[in-house]
Amino acid sequence: MPTDPPALRVRGLAKSFGRPAVAGLDLEIRAGEFYALLGPNGAGKTTSLRMVAGLLPPDAGSIEIFGIDARRDPIGAKRITAWVSDEPLVYDKLTPVEYLEFVAGLWSLPGPVAAARAADLIDWLGLGPQAHQRCEGFSKGMRQKVALAGALIHEPRLIILDEPLTGLDAGSARQVKSVLAERVGAGATIIMTTHILEVAERMAERIGVIAAGRLIAEGTLAELRAASGALHASLEEIFLDLVAGQDRAA
């Protein structure tokens, strides 16, 4: 009986910038899963995700997104993927509505479908009052919400988020988290890097810890606790322990 392909399957992914940034990363994320990728600064999280999103060519390895070989068929993979970075790069001179029009155009969405989704997203993210104002005076939180709306308008099956909550105030962060939870509820898969371990602890079904370009631990919070031998440890304690152990081994 054929099984559904995983949302993301990465095998032997490698990238070097003079020194190895990602060194043979293996990762598999199930469809409909919320996966948090953690790691210290310089561990290779962003580099890995940029390769998955098609923003950086890998030196070696394979990337499959819902069974599509992203290196052979990048357009097919991009069609069902969305990327949101920690720096919300939106166009200052466009309004959120115009930004969404533009993104809908890039993903070739039919006009009426895009219009309905744009209206929903603007509503969900509380962008209504600013929908027709240019983004140039927006706060970081507002810009991040516009970028997130753009990422979601084509209803991607895999959403890749690199530190999406960095610099957001509590209200904006809460709105973003609720939209992400809603997307997972609707069947989307999310892979997210974050330094805010509480978010990973509360939202992610599984957590991966990466150090020196390799996955050093993976599992649910309970599995990670069990593996660490500290059944009541917080994710922060487990994470710091894992990273310290990796440093000692290096």
Partner: peptide, 17 residues
């Protein structure tokens, strides 16, 4: 400045990327 564009302008779907 947060210069407003045409308020309430209808969503226009472009024909191609």
């Amino acid at each position: 400045p947060a210069a407003p564009a045409a308020r309430g302008a209808a969503f226009r779907g472009p024909s191609s990327p």
